[in-house]
Amino acid sequence: ENVVSAPMPGKVLRVLVRVGDRVRVGQGLLVLEAMKMENEIPSPRDGVVKRILVKEGEIDDTGQPLIELG
């Protein structure tokens, strides 16, 4: 899985990584606010952040691509 998608609709509060960062499975990639709760979205695998497809403050839909890993 190279693309991390939104598991729920919500607002992107914080992006915790930058392009080029090495990430490990379970590491937080970004924080979504949904139903007044903050949810940290973890990396599904080890890899390198290739692209960040959303910006802080954006509203996303379920299934929307958020981050691409390489």
Rank of each mutant, 00 (worst) to 15 (best):
V48H: 08
E38W: 08
M37E: 11
R24W: 10
E1F: 12
S5P: 08
V4G: 03
K11A: 04
M8T: 09
E58N: 10
R24V: 13
L53A: 04
L32P: 00
L30S: 00
N2K: 09
K50S: 10
V3Y: 14
R22F: 14
E68I: 15
R45Q: 10
V23H: 00
D60G: 15
V12E: 01
G47H: 03
V25K: 15
S5Y: 15
V19A: 07
G10N: 03
M8L: 09
L66R: 02
M8G: 10
P9N: 08
L53G: 02
P7V: 07
V54M: 06
N2Y: 15
R45G: 05
N2W: 15
L69F: 09
R24N: 10
V54F: 07
G20V: 03
K36D: 15
S43T: 04
N39Q: 14
L66S: 03
L69N: 01
G70W: 15
V19S: 04
E68W: 10
T62M: 14
K50G: 05
V49K: 01
I41M: 04
E68G: 03
I52L: 05
I52K: 01
I67M: 11
P42L: 14
E56P: 12
K36R: 11
L29E: 01
M37P: 03
P7A: 08
K11V: 10
N39T: 14
A6F: 09
P42N: 10
V54P: 02
K50N: 09
M35I: 07
L53K: 03
M37C: 11
R45W: 13
V15W: 08
P7Y: 06
D60K: 15
L13E: 06
G10R: 03
V31C: 05
M8F: 15
R14I: 09
V23K: 00
I67N: 01
R45F: 13
A6Y: 07
D61H: 15
R14F: 01
L29T: 02
A34F: 15
E1H: 13
V17S: 00
E33K: 04
R14C: 10
V49D: 02
Q64K: 11
V3W: 14
A34K: 04
V25F: 11
G47L: 04
D60V: 15
E56I: 14
V25W: 08
T62F: 13
L13D: 05
S43E: 01
K36V: 06
L30P: 01
V12T: 03
V48G: 02
D60N: 15
V23T: 02
G63K: 07
S43R: 01
E40R: 07
L30W: 00
D21S: 07
R51V: 09
V54H: 04
K50I: 14
D46T: 08
S43M: 02
R22I: 14
D46C: 10
G28C: 14
M8E: 06
N2C: 15
E68C: 11
K50Y: 08
R18N: 12
R45S: 10
R14M: 05
D21W: 04
P44V: 04
L29W: 01
I59S: 09
L13R: 05
M8S: 10
L66T: 02
V15P: 03
Q64I: 11
P9K: 12
K11P: 00
R24Q: 11
E1L: 13
P7K: 08
L30C: 05
I67A: 03
E33N: 03
V19Q: 08
V23N: 00
R45L: 12
G26A: 05
K36T: 12
G47K: 01
M35A: 12
D46A: 11
I52T: 01
V19N: 05
D60H: 15
M8I: 09
V17I: 07
A34R: 07
L13K: 11
T62W: 11
K50E: 09
R18G: 10
L30Y: 04
P65F: 07
R45P: 02
G10C: 09
E56M: 10
V12C: 07
V54D: 01
V31M: 04
E56Y: 09
K50L: 13
G26V: 04
L16W: 00
G57Y: 05
V54G: 03
E33M: 10
E1W: 12
G10Y: 03
S5G: 09
V15Q: 02
E1R: 10
E38Q: 11
P42H: 11
G57F: 06
P42Y: 11
E58A: 10
V12W: 00
Q64V: 12
P65D: 06
L53S: 03
V19L: 08
P9A: 13
R51W: 03
T62D: 08
L13Y: 00
L32G: 00
R45C: 13
M35K: 11
E33I: 10
V17P: 00
V3F: 14
D21E: 13
D61N: 12
Q27W: 02
G20W: 01
G20T: 04
E56A: 11
V15M: 06
P9Q: 10
R18P: 04
V12M: 03
I41L: 08
E33D: 07
D46E: 10
G57R: 04
L16N: 05
V12S: 01
G28Q: 05
G63S: 09
I59E: 11
E56F: 09
E38T: 10
L30G: 01
Q27M: 07
L69V: 08
D21G: 04
R14W: 01
V54S: 05
V25A: 14
I59R: 08
R18S: 13
L32K: 01
P7E: 06
E56N: 08
E56Q: 10
L66K: 02
P42F: 12
K11E: 04
P44H: 09
D61G: 11
E58Y: 13
G28D: 04
P65N: 06
G10T: 05
G47Y: 00
G47E: 02
I52F: 00
G20I: 04
E58D: 14
Q64W: 12
R51I: 08
G20Y: 02
E1P: 13
Q64C: 10
R14E: 09
K50A: 10
D21Q: 13
P44Q: 04
I52Q: 02
